[in-house]
Computed example of a mutant assay.
Amino acid sequence: MYVAVKGGERAIDNAHAWLGEARRGDRDVPELTVDQIREQMALAVNRVMAEGSLYDPDLAALAIKQARGDLIEAIFLVRAYRTTLPRFGGTAPVETDRMAVIRRISATFKDAPGGQVLGPTFDYTHRMLDFTLAAEGEAPVAPRTDAMAAEVPHITGFLNREGLIEQEAPSDAVPPDLTREPLELPAERALRLQALARGDEGFILGMAYSTQRGYARNHAFVGELRIGTVAVEMEVPELGFVIEIGEVELTECETVNQFRGSKTEPPQFTRGYGLVFGQTERKAISMALVDRALRWEELGEDNSGAPAQDAEFVLYHSDNIQATGFLEHIKLPHYVDFQAELELVRRLRREADGGGEVA
């Protein structure tokens, strides 16, 4: 047994060395640096930060390099590192009204107060391979305007004035922290939003798409999608007042959804909401659609049985780290379990052939 264990350790060490060699690739090609990943693969970095629940572009870029571009593995690395960090306290809610916007669009109002800013987006590209990128020449410098640093009101605020959209009462209650306590059902909306924010982008996208195809009565308009930086503020007990401790880039999406009314509420629009680290707009929109689908009960709607309306199904299966762990553990040795199953099948076959039990 001791020889087997030592042999296993040698095999694992060799596997690690081989992984490092494969990660490096052809040594005649310059090594990819963390700075290059951070600056030129920003959308991948943003996803790793969002689903890793840690805003640090440098660490996210390092994790992507270490994981050879496997974003779920990189997210796993970031989450694992996050557990080693001390917690100094909580910050004040970010004020997205005061976001320094680099992109802001609305699908509901053409002449949105404050203007629409297309920003850096693939929306209007032709989806054709650009072979000039393979030439590795200098990228052209795009003309640009400064970010909208002034306060930019939310589009839904204008619907609020006419009473056409549900009112959201502010709350001083401290929301539960999913990163410190395990998920429990039934989950309030704040906890659901946390789970969706760090859920797998592909899974959340699939759930959102299902609502658009009719698996939940959820016809949505993008009331507003905005991307930019916001100040992060924290109250320091020794000072007795709030100070700014940094900035983060966020993507925020508010959807406007139909609502026929209920016994207590008149017909009006309702909301779906998404807020994610970095420029992660596909995720933010998907999150808003799923958020709205999960609100059927509090809005007094019927449950059509759609997957996106099932909080237990959505929340327990959206976490790609839990899913990966459970899925990939079947690669590990299950020799004893399989031998038991094998013996059971052999016995059943003997019984089926009329041979009965064999001593």
Rank of each mutant, 00 (worst) to 15 (best):
V3L: 15
A4N: 09
I12T: 10
A17L: 04
L19H: 06
R23Q: 07
R23Y: 00
D26I: 09
D28F: 09
D28W: 09
V29Y: 05
E31M: 08
Q36P: 00
Q36M: 06
E39M: 08
L43F: 07
L43R: 13
V45M: 05
V48E: 01
G52A: 00
D58G: 09
D58P: 00
L59A: 06
I64G: 06
A67E: 01
L71G: 00
L71N: 02
E73G: 04
F76Y: 12
F76S: 07
R79E: 13
T83D: 04
T84W: 00
L85V: 00
F88V: 11
G90V: 12
G90D: 10
T91P: 08
V101A: 14
V101G: 04
R104T: 09
S106F: 11
K110C: 04
D111W: 11
D111S: 12
G114H: 01
G114P: 13
L118V: 14
P120S: 12
P120E: 12
Y124P: 02
T125F: 02
V141I: 15
V141E: 07
T145I: 11
T145K: 14
T145W: 08
A150Y: 07
P153W: 07
G163M: 03
L164W: 13
E168D: 08
A173C: 05
A173V: 12
V174R: 11
L178R: 02
T179E: 15
P186M: 01
P186I: 02
A190S: 09
A190T: 10
L193R: 13
L193I: 07
Q194N: 04
E201F: 03
L205W: 11
A208S: 13
R217K: 14
R226Y: 08
T229I: 07
V230L: 02
V232N: 04
E235D: 11
V236T: 10
V236N: 09
E244A: 15
C253W: 07
Q258L: 08
F259Y: 15
S262W: 00
S262I: 03
F269S: 06
F269G: 04
R271T: 05
G272C: 05
Y273R: 10
L275C: 06
L275M: 14
L275T: 05
Q279C: 10
A284E: 08
S286P: 06
M287S: 06
L289P: 01
L289A: 06
V290M: 08
D291E: 03
L294I: 04
E297R: 15
L299S: 01
G300K: 07
N303C: 11
P307Q: 10
A308L: 03
F313K: 14
F313Y: 12
V314I: 14
Y316K: 15
Y316I: 06
H317E: 07
E328F: 11
K331C: 04
Y335D: 05
A340N: 05
E341S: 11
L342N: 07
L344P: 01
V345K: 01
R346H: 04
E351N: 05
E357G: 04
A359C: 03
